[in-house]
Computed example of a mutant assay.
Amino acid sequence: MFKIVKNLNNKCIMNNIMIKVDLKDRKILYELDLDSRQSLTKIGKKVGLHKNVVVYRIKRLIEKGVIINFYTVIDSFKLGYNSLRFYLIFRHITPEIRKEMVDYFVNNKHTWWVGSFEGSYDLAVLFWVKELQDFYIFWEETLKKYRHYFQIQSVCNYVQLQLFRNSFLLDEPNKTDREKFEITGGGRKVKTNELDFKILEILS
């Protein structure tokens, strides 16, 4: 999957720099975000461009910083993990303490994702554990270290994740196009072995 920077009025905003993208670029971004495993030839047919032109445009979008990362969406539930997310609002915090705290979360073996925000929350952390007790032990240790810096703390255990197509990238998005196209959290667990996890680690 491709991580896409927010699009607004034919422009992408990244680090306060406005980058102009045309409709063809946005259609390519839409198709990549929908299914980046589809062939470039197939994407070209959908957007009305030759495969070589699609390759050129993708490289240009990477160079301009519109496409900033590649990542794999993994269904943690099928691997037997519980997914917990906690949101924090800070108080009385210095840049040094904030960095220390972020490093603390990033370096934990159960952490899957850490996000820093400006808005309703200051920081969000996504945690994967097979046993909820592992999270509670970690959370108690976290509160002992940093409780003084938390104005608000919100912890949730989510059981289903729905993703929606980014049809805002298109000029005339179809209303039905906003329907969910991928769900995690349903179905049975999948049997895996050590080799499977090594492959997933490389992909992610």
Results as ranks from 00 to 15, higher is better:
K59A: 03
Q153R: 10
T41D: 11
D134K: 07
L123Q: 02
V5K: 12
I97T: 08
F117K: 13
G48W: 06
N108R: 02
K175P: 03
G65D: 04
I13A: 10
D196P: 11
L126V: 06
L132I: 14
D75E: 03
D171M: 12
W113R: 12
F77A: 06
K11A: 09
L29S: 02
F2P: 10
W128P: 00
K59P: 05
S39R: 03
Q38Y: 09
K130N: 07
L161F: 14
K175R: 12
Y136G: 02
K20L: 15
I89T: 15
L23A: 14
D171K: 10
K3L: 09
Q162K: 15
T142W: 03
K51D: 01
F181T: 03
L79K: 04
V129H: 01
Q162F: 15
I43M: 10
L163K: 12
K189V: 09
K99N: 14
N9V: 07
H92I: 07
T184A: 12
N9G: 08
C12V: 15
N52P: 06
V159L: 10
N15Y: 05
L200M: 02
V159N: 12
K27Q: 15
F117C: 08
R98S: 02
L23K: 08
Q162S: 15
I97P: 00
G119F: 02
R178W: 06
S204Y: 03
F86H: 05
Y149S: 01
D33S: 09
G48Q: 11
K42L: 10
R188V: 13
Y104E: 01
V106P: 01
L163P: 05
E63Q: 08
K24T: 13
N9F: 03
K175G: 05
N69H: 14
L161A: 13
H92V: 10
Y71E: 04
S76W: 11
E118W: 06
E96H: 03
S154Y: 15
F150S: 00
C156S: 07
T72K: 14
F127C: 04
C156N: 09
E201N: 15
Q153I: 11
G119V: 08
D33N: 14
